[in-house]
Computed example of a mutant assay.
Amino acid sequence: MGSPKSTRQKSSESIVQDLDPTLSKQCAAKVMETIPLVMRFIRADMRDRKATELSVPQFRTLAFLDRNPGASLAELSEHLGVTCATASANTERLVQRNFVHRCDHPSERRRVSLKLTTEGKDHLDAARDLTRSYIADLLDSLSEEQIAKIDDSLAILYQVFESKSTP
């Protein structure tokens, strides 16, 4: 007779194998429908409020550099989905506002390293806080059970996609 652990593994494996393959496809369709809707909402909120005085690409730049200090301009342009020239112009505006520090890479002459300044980090945090507050206000109309379901679902999605994302 197998150990309790191996029995649990087998039963969880059989559950996964017994799932209807269309269930994951239906879920994927809902994810692809919902995430862009949420992102459009966040972008519209940021544009409407103008409280942060950041464009969406500038916000995305600050957020990327917060997660990737020392990133190159090429890495930033890839993240933003724009040319290096566009990313450079966007970054230059942030440098002029003292939100980003641009410096030569120590070992590669043609590469620059980009880092948030303290002021940039503070501004990014303020922008995030404003949007989080607005989203929290919207979620206040839900029950605790509904909020818990959303929270659990987002945690699962995070785990699935975190390991697949590129830095």
Rank of each mutant, 00 (worst) to 15 (best):
T7Q: 03
T7C: 00
Q9K: 08
Q9H: 13
Q9P: 02
K10Q: 14
K10T: 09
S11V: 03
S11W: 00
S11T: 05
S12E: 07
S12Q: 12
E13N: 14
E13V: 13
S14H: 07
S14Y: 07
S14A: 03
V16H: 02
Q17D: 06
Q17F: 10
D18Y: 08
D20E: 14
P21Q: 00
T22M: 14
T22P: 10
T22Q: 15
L23F: 10
S24W: 04
Q26V: 05
Q26K: 04
Q26L: 03
C27T: 10
A29I: 06
K30G: 01
V31Q: 08
M32H: 08
T34D: 02
I35D: 00
L37C: 08
L37Y: 12
V38W: 12
M39W: 07
R40Y: 13
R40A: 15
I42Q: 06
A44E: 11
A44R: 05
M46Q: 06
M46I: 03
R47E: 13
R47F: 04
D48I: 09
R49K: 14
K50H: 15
A51M: 05
T52A: 12
E53T: 04
S55V: 12
V56L: 14
V56W: 14
P57S: 01
Q58L: 02
F59W: 09
F59M: 07
R60C: 08
R60Y: 07
R60S: 12
R60P: 04
T61D: 01
L62H: 09
A63E: 13
F64I: 00
L65Q: 07
L65R: 01
D66E: 09
R67Q: 14
R67C: 12
R67S: 12
R67T: 04
N68Y: 12
P69Q: 06
P69D: 07
G70S: 13
S72R: 03
A74S: 15
E75G: 12
L76H: 15
L76N: 14
S77V: 05
S77R: 07
H79K: 02
L80H: 01
L80K: 00
G81H: 07
V82H: 04
V82W: 02
T83D: 10
T86F: 01
A87P: 04
A87V: 02
S88V: 04
A89H: 10
N90T: 10
R93P: 01
R93K: 15
L94G: 06
L94R: 12
L94N: 13
Q96D: 08
R97Q: 12
R97M: 10
V100W: 02
V100N: 07
V100I: 11
H101V: 03
R102Y: 03
D104W: 01
D104K: 13
H105A: 12
R110P: 02
R110W: 05
R110G: 11
R110F: 07
R111F: 02
V112Q: 15
S113F: 03
S113K: 10
T118D: 14
G120Q: 03
K121A: 05
D122A: 11
D125S: 14
A126Y: 06
A126W: 04
A127R: 13
A127Q: 04
A127E: 06
R128E: 08
R128I: 11
R128M: 09
R128S: 03
D129R: 09
D129E: 10
L130E: 08
R132I: 14
R132M: 06
S133R: 07
Y134W: 02
I135C: 06
A136I: 05
L138C: 06
L138M: 14
L139V: 05
S141Y: 07
S143E: 11
E145F: 13
Q146M: 13
Q146R: 14
A148R: 15
